[in-house]
Nucleic acid binder design. Structure first.
Length: 575
RNA sequence: CGGGGCGUAGCGCAGUCCGGUAGCGCGUUUGCUUCGGGAGCAAAAGGUCGUGGGUUCAAAUCCCGCCGCCCCGACCA
């Protein structure tokens, strides 16, 4: 491909609407162009990187017996009603009507369609197992798209679905996909980690995410130093390594005391001299289902130094979505006091206690009266918790739940997610087969997603420098970037064109900057685009029949005779 | 949806408080000189000032509505 005919336009200045490096670089390099919020055109270079990654994914999937199909993007309401997700997915589904006033949605995920596809023809245990996958554009009406391709509304996803006769076989399929994903992300040459995860609105009981590590990642991960454990903070058990021992003081009499103007744990800690981890924080959530009008308030107690993890609440209470915090007015309606003076004593709503609070005695809580707290409060005396459970957010330094040592925190970009679904969809959509014994049996399912367009940008987030992108070879749009430094010089042009043809003939993918630009401009742009190797063809070097080969990552340069270039490039690229 | 900010040339911005001729840098076009890390000089093209209404002799500027975008919070590959 030649630059002059590629419609690639680079930007010197950083676009104001791009926050993180990878987004800025993709825009500056002309890789992507925004059409609307969260919706992008992929330019020729971006598309090549995407296709390369898609093909890595296809190879690893095919190798493990998965079969590629392509399902419709426009899907009828009836199908989504069967799984109850027409309502459950809420506004994330983009819904619309056709001219006959029938309801449709754009495919946000394909469990329904693929289950329908399979149930129509799978009749016997002999037809299983199956693993069907597709690479396709998804549309999710994200609340807040941001960071370019990292959170688009429209994005490219590889989604795979496994169908098995029983749990053991389904677990095998899940493990195979785990291996496939490990192989896929290893081939990218990016630092990644797989972690335990929440299964979100997809459902199911077993779930792991694959994350590309990057400081700008939206997810917080906790990883054991000895590698025995890794989890998304959303689901990470909290075993506080430094939790203070229970004090053995006798129980004191509870009493009310004035705390005018003290609203936060910080204020209270300063005013009373009690450490934050010995104070008890009282928070209120609504455990009502989304869309429901009732509040169904619940109270949650954690240590003053801890945060409530709503995902853990969701799991404990078996809700579809994480509960939302009550606003100040709602809290006042429930407790009679504004937030800051609320406590569990005297409440009639369910009280959930984080197990970190359980060992405390004689502690301070709000009195449910503005400007007052209670001291020397003890549970199972002034009040009784409905349930004691792990409800707080785990953090760096907590004990490793699976081995020795402590957890270390990282940030990651979620690029893959695998779920064991069980019979969630086969049950609601009645997808069965006849077993060996002749019984109608529900199919065991799993589903496995990779955010293709997201991964490509995530790789950039992890691999760039101040000058631009540094593509790993595996998904670089091209291997080599020829800078033709003087298009008017006949010898330069001839040599560059010959190299271009010879390299392609040798299996090296070449991009040539044949624009009428000064060398400085071409060098800057080459660094910005970030192809692994650059070849400078200039009249200065050609006086000695030499060109320069520069590695993008190390910036190391070597001078080569023109006729040695093809061999050297094949060598460098191990072709 | 809640909170904050912004909308002026392809991109980045000033001008808005205090109403009075539409401005700067980059980019683009033409010419000359340059030519190995985003060149210099000269000339030029390019704007319904997001949009609809109102106030006024006069609105980018003041007032009201709407639309769009960005950032911070609850969703997900």
């Amino acid at each position: 491909m030649r630059w002059s005919r590629s419609h690639i336009h680079t930007l010197k200045e950083v676009p104001t609407d791009a926050e993180i490096a990878s987004h800025q670089l993709m825009v500056r390099g002309g890789y992507i162009k925004k059409l609307a919020q969260g919706i992008f055109t992929y330019g020729p270079l971006a598309l090549r990187a995407i296709k390369k990654f898609e093909n890595i994914v296809r190879e690893e999937m095919d190798k493990r017996g998965a079969v590629e199909i392509l399902m419709p993007m426009v899907q009828p309401r009836e199908l989504w009603e069967e799984s109850h997700r027409w309502a459950d997915m809420g506004k994330g589904l983009l819904k619309f009507k056709n001219r006959l006033d029938q309801d449709f949605c754009l495919g946000a995920t394909h469990e329904e369609v693929v289950t329908d596809y399979v149930r129509r023809d799978v009749k016997s245990y002999r037809d299983l197992p199956l693993n069907l996958y597709q690479v396709q554009t998804k549309y999710r009406d994200e609340i807040r798209p941001r960071f370019g391709l990292l959170r688009g509304r429209e994005f490219i996803m590889k989604d795979a679905y496994s169908f098995d006769v029983d749990v053991a076989s389904a677990h095998r399929s899940y493990r195979i996909m785990f291996e496939a994903y490990t192989a896929i992300f290893s081939r990218l040459g990016a630092k990644f980690v797989s972690v335990r995860a929440d299964s979100g609105s997809i459902g199911g009981s077993m779930s792991e995410e694959f994350h590309i590590l990057a400081d700008s990642g939206e997810d917080a991960l906790l990883v054991a130093e000895d590698g025995s454990f890794a989890a998304n903070v959303e689901v990470c058990p909290a075993l506080d390594a430094t939790i203070p021992e229970t004090n053995n003081d006798k129980l004191q009499h509870a009493e009310k005391f004035a705390t005018p103007g003290l609203k936060t744990i910080d204020d209270l800690s300063k005013a009373t001299g009690v450490a934050k981890h010995d104070l008890v924080k009282t928070l209120f959530f609504s455990a009502a289902e989304e869309g429901s009008k009732d509040l169904k308030p619940i109270c949650v107690l954690v240590r003053g130094s801890d945060e409530v993890n709503p995902i853990k609440l969701k799991s404990l209470l078996k809700l579809a979505n994480p509960p939302l915090m009550l606003n100040e007015k709602e809290v006042r309606d429930v407790t009679g006091a504004w937030p800051g003076s609320c406590g569990p004593v005297g409440l009639t709503i369910p009280i959930y206690m984080d197990n970190g609070v359980f060992s405390l005695k004689n502690y301070i809580v709000g009195a449910n009266e503005d400007g007052f707290h209670l001291r020397n409060v003890n549970h199972n005396r002034e009040y009784s918790p409905t349930e004691v459970a792990d409800l707080r957010v785990a953090r760096e330094g907590d004990k490793n739940p699976a081995g020795s040592g402590v957890l270390k925190s990282f940030r990651g970009i979620e690029v893959g997610h695998i779920f064991y679904l069980g019979t969630k969809y086969s049950k609601s959509m009645n997808a069965t087969f006849l077993s060996e014994k002749g019984d109608a049996t529900l199919i065991e399912m799993g589903c496995y997603g990779i955010g293709i367009s997201r991964t490509v940008q995530a790789v950039i987030e992890q691999s760039h420098d101040k000058d631009g992108i540094i593509w790993p070879e595996a998904i670089a749009p091209f291997h080599v970037h020829i800078c033709l430094l003087d298009i008017a010089d006949l010898k330069c042009a001839t040599v560059a064109n010959q190299l271009y043809d010879d390299l392609w003939a040798a299996g090296v993918e070449v991009f040539m900057d044949d624009r009428d630009e000064r060398p400085g401009v071409k060098f800057k742009d080459a660094d910005l685009l970030g192809l692994p190797f650059r070849i400078n063809v200039g009249s200065r070097g050609l006086q000695n029949n030499e060109v320069e080969v520069v590695a993008r990552r190390s910036k190391e340069m070597e001078k080569l005779k023109v006729n040695a270039v093809v061999g050297r490039m094949k060598d460098l690229l191990r072709k």
